[in-house]
């Protein structure tokens, strides 16, 4: 359903195809290593927890020494090699994880209410504003949830869980009709 982008009762769920992903581990206190990575990426690596930067790629903070770099699939392998090579002299790990992740988009006025059914995070725009991301639970799966704009969220989920999460979202969105009091 809804790859056509049409809102489904106030919510649209779609798979963002053609995405590539890199997993980056390095010491955030190692200035030179960080600078090198930022130079290759052409954008800053977020140091603040639960945020992402948006330039040529999205760079999501996953942990104090771990990031997920999302970009177009065709560029992932080359960028990965370039990063790995540039970081060769530092203690760092670059892994192409394009095959391991699926990105979903949940958009619409009721997107937040649909996500709140299965996510214990406070998604109020004051608390979870665009530019923020969090690894958390959705339904019974672990996901990376990112606030793209006030009514759209990106969800990056491990490939093997993506079917479940997709079905979970469709089910959660189903009863959404005109009226609903969002939390």
């Amino acid at each position: 359903m809804s790859d056509n982008g049409l809102p489904l009762s106030g919510v649209a769920i779609s798979v963002r195809s053609g995405r590539g992903f890199l997993n980056l581990r390095l010491n955030p206190h190692h200035g030179q290593a960080v600078e090198t990575a930022e130079r290759v990426l052409g954008q800053p690596i977020p140091q603040a927890a639960n945020t992402f930067t948006n330039g040529g790629h999205e760079v999501y903070w996953l942990g104090p020494d771990e990031w997920l770099i999302a970009n177009v699939a065709e560029r992932a392998a080359a960028l990965g090699s370039e990063l790995a090579e540039a970081l060769g002299g530092f203690h760092a790990a670059v892994n192409d994880v394009s095959g391991g992740n699926v990105e979903l988009l949940v958009r619409g006025a009721e997107a937040r209410a649909v996500l709140a059914k299965g996510c214990a995070l406070d998604l109020h725009p004051r608390e979870f504003a665009p530019g923020q991301c969090a690894q958390t639970g959705l339904g019974r799966a672990a996901v990376l949830l990112a606030a793209v704009d006030p009514s759209s969220y990106a969800i990056v989920v491990r490939r093997s869980f993506s079917d479940y999460v997709h079905r979970w979202l469709e089910n959660a969105a189903r009863p959404h009709r005109a009226r609903f009091s969002a939390p």
Binding site: K117, G118, G139, R140, Y164, R167, W168, N171, A172
Partner: peptide, 16 residues
């Protein structure tokens, strides 16, 4: 139980 019934009872992981 909420939504966790039927095929959403527990995540089902599948291979590619």
């Amino acid at each position: 139980a909420g939504e966790s019934v039927g095929d959403l009872y527990d995540p089902v992981r599948t291979t590619a």
